[in-house]
Amino acid sequence: MDEPLIHALDNNKTQAPPEHHGPLLDGEAELSFELRQPFYMEAYHWHQQIEVNILYQGALTYSFNHSDVSIESGQMAVFWAVTPHRVKQTSDNALMGIINIPLNMFLSWPLPQEFVQQVMNGGAISACHTEVVSFAENQRWIGAYREGHQVRNQIVQEEIFLMLRRLCSYDYHAEMFNSIHEPPLRHTNYTGYKNVQLMVDYIANNHNRDIKIEDIASHVKLHPKYAMSLFKNMLSVSIKQYLIIMRINHAKLLLSNTRHPIKNIANHSGFKHPSSFFAAFRNHTGMTPQAFREQSQQQTVL
């Protein structure tokens, strides 16, 4: 292990958490960072955040529902950690930066629709990190969040968004896990996880249509009230909120990349009435669709 990385690891050393059997349905809503050696995990687990793993040294192999994904030094992996996963194998010299992004935060960012859908549909994104994020940046983010400075923390959030946006500008590989397998240690919530994943998949493919909660619940053969409760308990966001966020993100992309009239964009994003689109867009972004379009076009010119 290189001397500078040894020093960094010593300064950021964390104890391996106790072994968890079954899912981790934690409700963490804050961005979090780690820099440590990855460790073998006997049991599958999951949680609600988007997980970014940046491997600076060594190699490791994940298992996602019995399907293996391997990354080596210089690579990174991005996935929605609600998919049951574990570290199956890791080299002794491995060193990894870990970023956990709250789901609401991830969905609020205007990232390419294809990338968001690949992540939310259970894909594991892998790519070379050397052009996307540096070891020094990872250390700086950890240090900034330890300080707890509000303005600098906001800047870090923006830099994480830009890191993912930069990732999308390069070639990356998406390993999709279309079939849901059962982990070796069955958990009472696993059927619930499968139903929520199917609902998320249905929303990803149909959010720009005039679908309702009843349609989503019917897709997984659940009563609407039970489907809403299950979704909220698993993801800490309601079906309605999630659907609106997906529609707003769709609209952001159209506003940034097309000259379509805003009324047409509202309709193409799944909003039945322009007034509901304007209200939802202002509520989620703090600005009107026209102001967002002007700002995004200015950033493109710069």
Rank of each mutant, 00 (worst) to 15 (best):
N11E: 15
R259Q: 14
G97L: 05
R86Q: 08
H85R: 00
T130K: 14
I101S: 06
Q37D: 13
N257K: 10
L9D: 04
Q290T: 06
S236V: 08
I155D: 09
F278G: 02
H219I: 04
H21K: 15
V78M: 02
R152K: 12
H7P: 06
P38N: 07
K252N: 09
V220I: 09
E147S: 09
L25E: 03
S276P: 04
L60W: 01
V87C: 06
E137K: 02
H173F: 06
D215F: 06
K221Y: 11
L185F: 12
E34Y: 13
L222I: 05
A266I: 01
D201K: 10
K225V: 08
L9T: 01
Q154M: 10
F231Y: 10
Q117Y: 01
S256E: 13
Q48P: 05
L24P: 04
E158L: 07
H273W: 09
F115V: 11
K240S: 03
F281C: 01
N12R: 00
S108K: 03
Q49F: 05
R209G: 00
V196Q: 06
P183G: 01
S63L: 10
R152P: 05
P17A: 10
H173A: 03
S296Q: 11
H21I: 13
L60I: 00
Y62I: 02
L255P: 00
V200S: 08
V132M: 04
L222W: 06
I245D: 09
H21T: 12
I248R: 01
S134V: 07
V237S: 07
S70C: 05
E175V: 05
L35M: 10
M120I: 11
Q290Y: 00
M287G: 08
F135D: 00
N11W: 12
P102R: 07
E131G: 14
G286N: 15
N11A: 15
D92S: 11
F64P: 02
L255D: 03
L164H: 08
A127I: 02
R209M: 07
L107A: 03
Y40L: 14
Q150N: 13
Y190F: 15
I54P: 06
H181I: 00
D10C: 15
H250K: 14
S126D: 07
N206E: 11
G58W: 01
G27Q: 15
T288W: 07
